[in-house]
Amino acid sequence: MKVRKNASAYQELANEYEIDLGLNEEQSIAMHSNQPFMLNEDQLDYIVDQMTVTVGIDRYLQAHSEVLLPIALSLFVINERLWKIMERKPWDKEKMLAMCTIPLCTWERKAETTSNPKGSNRWDIHPNSLELALEKNPKILVCGEGGDFSGFIEQSQITMRKFGIPESRKLIPNYTFEQLQMEVKLDRAVFEIHPSPRDNLDYDYSEPARTFYNHGFAISVPGEDVILKVSKRKSLKMAGEVFLLIGSQILEDDDTQHYRALKIDILLRALQRRFT
């Protein structure tokens, strides 16, 4: 757990599932005074034990994974061919861009600001799906609309289409809006919950790393264990190594989202226990 939750979220959890939270004295005081606080790992384990005691951890994960929806996603693929392509970037050539993203992220001239010099514009996330198939040959299935990396394009080509006036020939990432379907086999997967940002990854044209750190997880897996289908194109296995980020956008200052965020934290802890 990386973010404090409102006392009302914990109370709602205890009431809905009739479980004990195992709070210490300081947390109990915060609970009664309606102050936000965090649970430690032992307390999360205690809650997971109660939530899974009758159905088992696999059924719990399958039944509750919908709390993550709609998901944000970034698919990073690491291989020599893609590193060669990254050499065309006008910035951070040593950082890999995501090959697929939810949501779609594109360059917009009006989005260029001091805090966003690359002009990255993140679109809204549309409804999508995530399924955990864990009984035999465990895998994750994802389906949704997002962005597919299609190399680089001159900025002037976009401004010409929109405004009829050529501008800079600077290269920018070209992501196209596509229907994405992904199957990730989990037999050899390494899971990490609340993954920290990685220095060799470029998050500028994908969901911010903080989303996955606060409310998400990462999977490291051989590329051949990931099958990607983009719109009507042929399904392809990835080449090299894959680092997949999946998480949920939570507005921390929106009190109505704290209960969902708490249930995500519990789900992530259960996921970590299942695969580590």
Rank of each mutant, 00 (worst) to 15 (best):
Q155E: 12
M38C: 15
D265H: 04
N128I: 07
I153M: 04
Q50T: 05
S28R: 08
N24F: 12
A133T: 09
Y60I: 01
I266G: 01
T176E: 14
G223H: 03
K162L: 10
F212S: 01
Q43N: 07
G164E: 03
L251S: 07
D92V: 04
E154D: 12
A133F: 10
M1L: 10
M38F: 12
K89P: 03
T113S: 13
R169G: 07
I264N: 00
Q257R: 06
Q272C: 03
H258L: 05
P138T: 06
W107V: 03
P173W: 09
M182C: 13
Q249T: 08
M31K: 10
R233T: 15
E66P: 00
W83A: 08
R210P: 01
R169Q: 14
D124T: 11
G240T: 06
V3F: 09
Q155G: 06
L69Q: 14
A98E: 08
H215P: 00
G144F: 07
K110H: 13
P195A: 06
S74V: 06
F37G: 08
K162T: 14
F275K: 02
D58Y: 08
L245R: 06
E25M: 14
E18W: 02
A270V: 02
K89C: 03
A189L: 05
S168I: 09
N174I: 04
P166V: 14
P70N: 04
R122Q: 14
V48N: 02
R198H: 09
L104K: 15
G216Q: 01
P166A: 07
K232I: 05
L267E: 07
L39R: 00
T276V: 13
D225E: 14
I264H: 02
A239N: 13
Y259C: 13
T52R: 02
C105Y: 08
I219V: 15
I158E: 09
G147I: 08
T159W: 00
V184Q: 11
R273Q: 09
